[in-house]
Design a protein around this nucleic acid. Structure first.
Lengths: 147, 147
DNA sequence: TTAAACCCTAGACATAACTCTATGGCAAGT
DNA sequence: ACTTGCCATAGAGTTATGTCTAGGGTTTAA
């Protein structure tokens, strides 16, 4: 009817260490203990833990996840606060995704250059430009000139 | 004709500390020094630094960025190695973006729930389920029951 | 020629998020 | 009752990526 920390670790792909760490960080105030002090996870606890993982996987800081959990623990009156926290987070995630897309486009540009049949030629031209610039500024050439 | 570290910091939005840190990590072997030991950045150096920032902004580890830079320093014969490094990285970034999309979809589900007109009701129902489960397992109820 | 504003390095400190170690209690099977 | 394996905590250690401080040389401009 309940799960041990080991079982939860297996289900969630979090390590036992991480689960205890999250508990210590105040992310798991809903997890009960049995008479020996062992954690007992219910299905409902796993649902909440799943939400925690979603927030973590989208890059939310533990501090903010803790805030969310505190809202959950406080009951239905915090719905609006939860909504604001999640929508703010959503905006950050989307912005971050866009930033990565833009930077990845530049990486793709490089990839295309390197994948082109004349790649060595264009790279050699780039290198020639860089070394010429070093020379023009009376700076040593840091590149390995093979041949 | 060349830029000081301060000017480069202003251009790149990296701090002077970060630039020196990157140099210490072997990311800037191409940057020359003047007779006083001051760094002198050329335009070509800025191009390379821009690539470094792209890789960093897409989540590449410094260790791998250093590997890329080492390939660049070694000249045009490393084009294929550079290509492999970048395409491997690209795959990781895309996979990571997809993972985030999936997790964000779950966050969106929560957002929609909280944004619905009957949000408090459904949250109260969720809470009732969780507390009932705790009770059924003879565990204390960790939720703040207002009222 | 001196003050202000640069530049340098080495190395300490910071932060986040784990990860592990030491030590000891509890549980289940023989 | 013992052994094995699981559970607990406290707190030390790790990794990555900076950020800052101390101590000292350099450049510029009044």
């Amino acid at each position: 009817m309940t799960y041990t920390i080991k079982e939860v670790a297996a289900k969630t792909n979090l390590s036992i260490y991480t689960l205890r760490f999250y508990d210590k960080q105040g992310l798991l105030p809903f997890v009960a203990r049995n008479k020996s002090g062992y954690r007992e996870f219910t299905e409902g606890d796993l649902n909440l833990l799943q939400t925690i993982c979603c927030l973590k996987n989208t890059g939310m800081k533990i501090k903010n996840i803790r805030q969310y959990i505190e809202y959950v623990m406080a009951g239905p009156t915090t719905v609006e606060l939860r909504l604001k926290l999640l929508t703010d987070h959503r905006l950050e995630v989307v912005a971050q995704q866009q930033k990565i897309q833009q930077n990845l486009a530049e990486v793709d540009y490089k990839i295309n250059m390197y994948a082109a049949p004349n790649a060595e030629t264009s790279v050699a031209r780039e290198l020639a430009f860089a070394t010429a610039e070093k020379k023009a500024n009376h700076l040593p050439n840091p590149y390995q000139m093979t041949k």
